[in-house]
Design a protein around this nucleic acid. Structure first.
Lengths: 333, 333
DNA sequence: TTGTATGCGTTATCAC
DNA sequence: GTGATAACGCATACAA
């Protein structure tokens, strides 16, 4: 920087101004400065800038498990917005280890990151007290059971209900549900939506038609096999995510049932594989990238002191009808 | 820090020493310092430390496209090693935009990151000149056609040949190949391995059995459909990745062909979905996480001045035999 | 073993 | 509109 200043015949303060707030520098001076910068091949040192401004221009995206393709789409939205706002994204998967989560929260205290986009559905114990000792954060997708944190999410209850209502509209009445782990709020919401839709349709709920899984294809396979072994088997299955829906379809095929002719299956998430599956999966699409982008933009606003640190944004979902669902067959009912 | 110094009755230099090189501080003093740190709840400011040491303790992982689940496993390896070495990982997908790649290379010049783990198979033009103006980097998986860069990869030629030899061993002779985009060195290597194995087996190569795709399930589906429409269709297909293999299986099923009875299919990568697919996919497993970890460790050594900036590590692959391959049927040959 | 003093490269404040 | 200067918080060379 000093070299540039000497070459341009100005002080280092002017170099800084020319770069940070060009309007505060006379055009002619600015041109001279820029020419000198080009000539020398100068790049401002972010380390020094960061120290001076006490900010890192880096945020952390914390996800429950990176292998879940669903988070990838969220990441894309976060990264895209971050780039536009001049932030970098530290990606981190917690793999359901609370210590790991706490470790990443600590990065903000160490001034290695400015804030967190949280998609884990949990808070480390240390931060559970008041929101006062929490770092700047925005919750996305997997929301928390407290309403004092800025949150971007979908209405899981309504989305699940919509999927089930679609099945009801196709004539199905024996509709099973493969739920996710019920400690998780998302799983509970989707189960609640399933129940609400059946109730609204005047269909008596049969608790034996609700099976729990862990969001893996294997769990979906086992759950599907169990459901299809029943004396009166369901004619449709609503799974709490796509992977379990895929597993259920695999189980159906092994049981000799044609999907969708003899069994309709609906998933949730619309991951990339959903359209490639055989048959292509009917599923609830979430605006993942949009959720990620909004969360990141909110966080950037928060860090700039331009936004409120609580509230909620609820985005719309969309039922994508593909080839895994069909009107009920008389013979199968 | 000043508060801690006052409370412990020492200078700030001693605080720093107690943290950075504890052996240079008398045990008793160290204990007093640590107690004061605990009492005050002091955390060193990484911003200041970074500036002083001219390092960020952050590395960039550049991947071609984040949606490819294959990179996720690499990321896990990189992140795990990075954590152990005290680094954070900036994850970035380039989405085949050279400007984006250059932009991330620039982050090192701006001192926002110390080095790069490169999994894109390309270098930005600016760095194409000599390795002198390249940031510290280690190439992983998608290697470059120059041997002066530290590289961690598998032997794609041998791995592909092994897969084809397995099919030959099952009695197949009409073996097709769905290749990836041939500008990419990985695609070319796998094609070369396919050819080499056929030649070694004394099977005449039939160029009409080689079809190109773009690594997507859809491309695999189209390629599979095209191959199975031939007068003399293949009895086995070796696809350059799992997703194309999955698409080919879908095409086979639609053509009324049973996999593996009437058509054997082998993939490459062993992504998570491979074992969940119906039928579970026979495929070449890469040690992704290990590749990522080795690349990261090498980079860390490089940054510490403890390793050579060129060379090559070639890791072993493993053929995972599942349900998509079977001995050839006489009737189908 | 510990303290003192300096500098890392910026940017913000205050003069001019 | 521009320059001089201090300060951000830490780590290190040197002195004691």
């Amino acid at each position: 920087m000093k070299d540039v200043a000497r070459l341009a015949g100005v002080s280092t303060a002017t170099i800084s101004r020319a770069l940070v707030s060009p309007d505060k520098v006379r055009a002619e001076t600015r041109a001279r400065v820029m020419a000198a910068i080009d000539r020398i091949g100068y790049t401002p040192n972010a380390l020094a800038r960061n120290l001076r401004q006490m900010r890192t221009s880096t945020v952390i995206l914390l996800v429950r498990e990176i292998v879940n393709p669903f988070y990838l789409e969220i990441f894309r939205g976060v990264e895209s917005a971050a780039r536009q706002r001049g932030y970098n994204v530290l990606m981190s998967n917690v793999e359901r280890s609370p210590e790991r989560e706490l470790e990443y929260f600590d990065l903000v205290r160490q001034r290695r990151a400015d804030g967190i986009v949280l998609a884990t559905g949990t808070l480390p114990d240390a931060g559970a007290g008041g929101s006062s000792d929490l770092p700047p954060l925005v919750v996305v997708s997997e929301y928390l059971p407290r309403d004092d944190l800025p949150t971007v999410r979908i209405d899981n209850v309504a989305a699940a209900a919509g999927a089930v209502e679609y099945l009801v509209g196709l004539g199905h009445a024996r509709i099973a549900h493969i739920a996710g782990p019920l400690p998780e709020v998302l799983s509970r919401d989707r189960l609640a939506g399933y129940r609400a839709a059946l109730e609204r349709a005047g269909i008596e709920t049969d608790e034996s038609l609700v099976v729990r899984g862990d969001y893996s294809t294997h769990a979906g396979y086992r759950a599907g096999a169990a459901l299809l072994n029943r004396r009166r088997r369901p004619t449709a299955i609503f799974a709490a995510n796509d992977e379990m829906a895929m597993g259920a379809i695999k189980a159906a095929r092994e049981a000799g049932l044609a999907v969708p002719r003899e069994l309709s299956v609906v998933g949730f998430d619309d991951i990339k594989m959903a359209s490639a599956w055989d048959p292509a999966l009917t599923t609830v699409a979430q605006p993942c990238a949009d959720m990620g982008a909004r969360a990141m933009n909110w966080l950037a606003d928060l860090l700039a002191g331009e936004a409120s640190a609580n509230g909620e944004v609820v985005l719309d979902t969309r039922l994508v009808v593909r080839d895994s669902t069909a009107p009920i067959q008389r013979s199968a009912s």
